[in-house]
Design a protein around this nucleic acid. Structure first.
Lengths: 227, 227
DNA sequence: GCGTGTGAACTGGTTCACAGCG
DNA sequence: CGCTGTGAACCAGTTCACACGC
């Protein structure tokens, strides 16, 4: 019935991708899908797809692949993706504003309920669909509004300090876009770092190897693990 | 002298992070650093840091850690991060505009030289420091301007099609922000997918496990692999 | 026969222990 | 005595092969 063991981290990642893919497939009206088809769309082997899905228990019809709707539901239940979490955006620079205005989180289990910035000037001139608050109210508002998740888009210098305020406010998870690795004391808070600049470095490095290995070689490339 | 074997993917990622960290340390005026200090800042063990750095050959002074400047240079040389690549932003929606205006790529080995969008209206009303072009000129401009890298910020539906145009234009690497996995035929092109919505799902799943495992347990969390 | 479910082998990345130099 | 460099043990995830149901 319920998942016996917590799955490995890569498995969680891939199941989340499969969940998203199922959404897209449903949107297109596709009702059934095979492990190899999923693998192709996700750039992984059919083996791992089956292993991952199998962690959920038996889901597919043996000769005929998986029912897309069922698969999606089962993954959603097992990973706790069905609920809607309350999110906020902290730091309303270029990236923060973009995320704040992004429609589509709503469809994916998140409601953005607040924005924060240290620059009160910016708060006054910005138009937004949700309430904006000055940074010093961060902790209180997070607690009062029962915010689950923060999208942290502040400069590197203030990232650690801001994260600590979020934790004090009782946040449950943080998606960190600042180019530092946060160190959060509380084990009750989940943190994930998405460092775009570092992604560019990785890309540059891979391209560099690519060039020097005379058009042959392969080093997996891909790999969407952790931003 | 030169790297014998291509390092594993996780090693490349971490070395890129170390490279970035060295930059920050130099900025602070720190001249020497130990593997354990690096490990702490990056959220990994000192063992892996040493193993990774050791792939470069001997770098540190045995009793006294690493010289930050030397370390940075060695990593830069080995991974090909010293050169400056020419980049463009494709798709000037919220995220694309934010990236286009982001200062700081310049400091990290990238020059943004062009922007593209299918909406000509948007091109006219936008102010930007670099030339903007309509989407149908993508392939030609990429070739003419010798653009190495594309930051792909178009909607999911057009991502695959756009990527193919980029490849036709002779692009070397693509950082894809669209929530699909690109399938690129040419082995000469490096692709990396950064799916923010999927990161949110992963975060949600991890938080869910976190809750159900009664404040104990640990599932590595962290892990910045690939976004 | 196609395609899932799954135990067994395998690969390679991480962890550890310790040698050696400042 | 601290901290790097590195070979050996360990372990986890992936790959493979095959049984079984439609």
């Amino acid at each position: 019935m319920e998942p016996q063991t917590t799955p490995s981290f890569p498995t969680v990642q891939r199941l989340c991708s499969v969940y998203g893919l199922c959404g897209a497939l449903l949107h297109d009206g596709t009702e059934r899908v095979s492990s190899s088809a999923i693998g192709q769309r996700l750039g992984v082997s059919a083996f791992v797809v089956r292993k991952d899905i199998n962690w959920l228990g038996e889901v597919g019809q043996v000769g005929a692949g998986y029912d897309v709707a069922t698969l999606r539901t089962r993954i959603g239940e097992a990973l706790g993706l069905e609920r809607t979490l309350r999110a906020c955006v902290v730091g309303l620079g270029k990236l923060g504003s973009a995320l704040l205005q992004h429609k589509g989180f709503a469809l994916e289990g998140y409601t953005v309920v607040a924005g924060f910035d240290a620059n009160t000037n910016r708060l006054e001139t910005m138009r937004a669909a949700v309430p904006l608050y000055p940074a010093h109210e961060l902790q209180d508002v997070v607690r009062r509004e029962r915010i689950d998740t923060a999208l942290l888009c502040v400069p590197a210098e203030s990232a650690q300090r801001t994260a600590e305020a979020l934790v004090q406010g009782g946040i449950r998870s943080i998606l960190n876009f600042a180019p530092v690795v946060l160190s959060v004391a509380s084990a009750a808070v989940v943190v994930r770092d998405v460092d775009i600049v570092n992604e560019l470095r990785v890309l540059s490095a891979l391209a560099s190897f690519q060039e020097s290995s005379g058009s042959g070689e392969h080093l997996d490339k891909r790999n969407t693990k952790g931003a």
